[in-house]
Design a protein around this nucleic acid. Sequence first.
RNA 1: GGGCGAGUGGCGGAAUGGCAGACGCAAAGGACUUAAAAUCCUUCGGUUGUAAAACCAUGAGGGUUCAAGUCCCUCCUCGCCCACCA
Length: 835
Amino acid sequence: MKLYNFNEIEETWQDWWRETGLFKVDEKNIKDKYYCLMMFPYPSAALHVGHGRNYIIGDVVARYNMMKGLNVLTPMGWDAFGLPAENAAIKNGIDPKKSTLSNINMMKAQLASWGVNYDWDREVTSCMPDYYKWTQWIFLKLYEKVLAYRKNAFVNWCSSCNTVLANEQVIDGACERCDTEVDQKRLEQWFFKITDYAQKLIDDLDKLDEWPDKVKTMQRNWIGRSEGVNIDFPVCHSEASPVPSEVEGKSPKDLNLTCFTTRVDTIYGCTYMVLAAEHPMIEELIADNPEKDKIMKFVQEVRSKSRIQRVQTDTEKRGIFTGRYVINQVNGRKIPLWIADYVLMEYGTGAVMAVPAHDQRDFEFAKKYDLPVEVVIDDPKDHLDAGKLTEAYENEGVLTASAQFDGMKNKDAMESIADYMEKEKIGERTIHFKLRDWLISRQRYWGAPIPMVYCDKCGIVPVPEEDLPVLLPEGVEFRPTGESPLKEASDFVKTTCPECGGNARREIDTMDTFVDSSWYYLRYISPKADDKPFEKADVNGWLPVDQYIGGVEHAILHLLYSRFITKVLSDMDYIGFDEPFKRLFTQGMIVKDGAKMSKSKGNVVDPAELIKKYGADTVRLYTLFLGPPEKDAEWSDRGVEGSFRFVKRAWNLLEVLGSAPEFEGNKEASLGLLRKMHQTIKKVTDDIEDSFHFNTAISAVMELVNYVYSGLNDNGKDCFSKKCMEEVVKNMTLLLAPFVPHIAEEMHKQTGGEKSVFEETWPSFNEDMLVEDIIVIPVQVNGKLRNTIEMARGIDEETVRETILADDKTKPWLEGKQIRKWIIIPDKLVNIVVQ
RNA sequence: GGGCGAGUGGCGGAAUGGCAGACGCAAAGGACUUAAAAUCCUUCGGUUGUAAAACCAUGAGGGUUCAAGUCCCUCCUCGCCCACCA
């Protein structure tokens, strides 16, 4: 028996692929192009089998499409800037660049050991100047279009670590590292104006018909478009004021509060108004209120709470009366103006018209502070009584106590009232988005410097394109101090103004790493270009990406940012397409013992040991066989054994074939085997094409292999002809090649293949060979299976009936019954309906 | 609170509305072996039955249909994402 020496086979072919450059692609040749892209990884610790799934899936897709004759591009690179390397540096004193580059080398070796291949000539590393030069270029382009701007913003601040924290680093309102309560602090920060593209980002989701609906829905919700009305509420001095009066000499027009609502139909039920604690007019509004200090104390208290704390819905809402009133212009009514912690400044206008009867939050607040509750949308089935409400009525209904709009369905009233308001100029229709502008400033060391200069004379000046890259200085002390560590690098900070040549200082913040990853798929096309980020013509030829593969955790941020940057570059005519990824596949996680693999949980499965014990092909096969790849899957070390057994059984077919005599075999049996083979080709092809369901594709090949063995075991009688066996083994090798590439190459060679199995053509099936001549038809009586009968395919219904009625096994079920109906699904099933 | 998924043997999982449990793991029995590993064969959802076979069974309950794991309604459980978004 030929020994299955997987270590030797795998090493041989991995070397061979590298040496012959099987995966190398000429970017000028875009004929039959297929751009297969995996989300590039952050180079952290060693990869475990869970990470492996992503790359293995991608490798299968790439190899399959090569065999389909496509010109496949599969590049790989590194999302190499970021916090973990910097934290490790702070903790252990390892230079982040060193640790990152060494991690990259380790991961490259790991990928190779899996038999996962890329066109490494196109490798990009986002922390290297030849890459981030162009990340900075993108920043400048956005700045040029006023899509990059600076503004004062509230950020999470840890007073103990003395640094800004990302929202993700704040756990239950406290710093994840030292548990100190996080403050809100105003800082000047750089933003990308992604909100300008909110509508387009929503609209174009419709074009992405090969994206999972789940991801599109998540993006839609995140962008959060809502249609509504901005309503003006003039401020008046007190409830007693006969007319809108002035506050300290300002006309009512100037002192006007606008609020946004999606429920304009409830306007007549508005009994008070609430402002966010951050509302800019608060101080002006309470300037002459004797309770001013008390109010401001409350406001400060609310402001000092973290976003995370404020967003907790279960805490009781708190508020304070401003002493002022505003006028609801639809009925001229004066309603009190409050400040409350449940209103968000960043959504809408920071002012909310409160309708306690029809909004649960307002209801709770009104009950607590004894504000009136007035029903204006009545439940048609069950008349509502404001005094008896225990919660807000938020359903559909008919308007009541709403002047001329009484009796209208609330959906219709929304339109009528909005029309009325626009006519009377007291409000106007508007659209709001939840999407916020993208804060890209980071007070961290390990990122791409923002290419801007501050000059006392000229102000904020962009670094000229020809001066890029702005190099990240090395050997900087990056212990967190509250400001970017780059502040301490005086050689870096001190510069001259590009405009006037005078003394100036550099921006010391670095960019969010999501900026780096929002355009890398373009750089792969022209990784070596040093005078431009990419060759426009080549990029236009290769993009959009035909297949993008990655984790669903990137469903919102990375994919949204990439779409945004693509749209900006498209609008600026640097590229000729406005969506980067045509088809998206999001794979599930691999879990072990019910939990995500992590070092701290101690449930990490190291691929190296498994590869040593069973070989990479087995590990690949098991990873793919585990379950449908879009779902989470439970890893079982024992399960790997099964895959190993199968790989060995497949390998052993070489031996079987070698020792088989030149035997004609049994014609029927051989035909049966060929049928099975064609069915398998169809099944495997369809599973890969339609759904990436490699698990069922592999089980189909397992069935084929089992079929071969089961024929052999009937030795002598039903043996398959040698010719037929050869055909089956050759095609099986091709079918398995994307999954288990090393053994497939070896088997291909040993069965006479002269070139790489990946240069062979994917097998095709013969439609006529898919179906049997004699088929087994299930016979049901009243929907219950009572018999199965062999029949020739395509037989007429009359014969079917006769055959069934004549069959001894069917008879007892029909005796004494009256047949009411025959359901005959040709060549598939018969159901006899009896009384 | 909102959105999206998912509930099928001991386990991972299969099933264009048409024979539920493919394929694999585990388990049990057997063959080979001095023995073990490897390999091969057999059994393997539940109940009743010596058997033939019958009945029950895809989270629960209804419905549509000749026929439902699959479609519709109500409910339960779990997972993920978002969340005081006016």
